[in-house]
Amino acid sequence: MSQQMFGLQGQTALVTGAGRGMGVGIARTLGRLGARVAVNDLFTERAADTVNTLRAEGIDAFPAAADITDYDQVAAMVARVNAATAGIDILVSNAGVPAEGMGYKKFLASTPADWQRFVNLNMFGLMNICHATVPGMQERGYGRVVAITSESWRAGLPMGIAAYAASKAGAVGFIRHLAAETGRSGITVNALSLGTMNNWDSDALAKKTCFVPRAGSPEDVGAGVAYFASPEAAWVTGQVLPLNGGALTA
Rank of each mutant, 00 (worst) to 15 (best):
A234Q: 13
L14S: 08
V240D: 09
L14Y: 02
A226S: 15
V24R: 14
Y71K: 09
Y227I: 07
A65W: 06
Q4I: 02
G160R: 11
N122R: 05
H177M: 06
Y164A: 15
M159D: 08
A35N: 01
M127T: 10
V78G: 05
G238H: 10
M197N: 08
T209E: 11
G31L: 00
L157C: 08
R32C: 08
I88H: 02
V81G: 11
L241G: 03
L192N: 04
V74R: 00
A47E: 02
N52C: 02
R117Q: 03
Y104L: 15
S93K: 07
L30G: 07
G25S: 09
T182C: 05
G222Q: 05
A18H: 07
T85H: 09
N190E: 01
F6A: 00
G186E: 05
T53M: 03
G224R: 09
T69Q: 04
G34F: 00
I187G: 01
E219S: 14
G186P: 02
A47D: 07
A47C: 11
G58C: 04
E219Q: 15
R154A: 11
G58E: 03
P98T: 07
G87V: 03
F124Y: 14
H177W: 05
S193C: 12
A180S: 07
R32E: 13
A132L: 08
S185Q: 08
V39K: 02
L42W: 05
R46E: 10
A83I: 02
Q116I: 06
